[in-house]
């Protein structure tokens, strides 16, 4: 197994990021798409914190991770509010059923 290096954390971060990207691209359920975005943001946080651990004693990565979390909270709040509005008006959470702009 060997020692865990910075690269291992970055590999994991890349894998998680693209699992999230797959969820956004493939799933049609708005709730799951929103949760996939959260996973992508978390994967990015992991690389920030991993880089901070291996850079010359600065903690800037931790502060950036904090900012990303605050943005994720705002995004989740607004996204869910929009989702509730959509559900109230259209009674659906499937992205494929939302064709108002296309028809």
């Amino acid at each position: 197994m060997g020692a865990v290096t910075l690269n291992h954390y970055l590999y994991l971060s890349a894998i998680l990021f693209f699992i999230g990207a797959f969820g956004v691209l493939f799933r049609r359920n708005l709730l799951v798409m929103l949760m996939s975005v959260e996973l992508m943001l978390n994967a990015v946080n992991l690389s920030f914190v991993a880089f901070a651990r291996h850079s010359a004693g600065t903690m800037d990565g931790h502060v950036i991770a904090f900012f990303v979390m605050a943005l994720a909270a705002a995004e989740a709040g607004i996204g869910l509010a929009i989702l509730v509005m959509v559900f109230r008006n259209r009674t659906t959470v499937q992205a494929d059923d939302l064709t108002l702009m296309r028809d």
Partner: peptide, 25 residues
């Protein structure tokens, strides 16, 4: 990764608050 602060935030804000919000919705 010795990120004490981010660890606490991750548990409190992410696994706590944001996921409660999503599950509640």
């Amino acid at each position: 990764l010795n990120a004490e602060f981010v660890f606490i935030l991750q548990v409190l804000v992410y696994a706590g608050a944001i996921m409660v919000l999503i599950i509640f919705t």
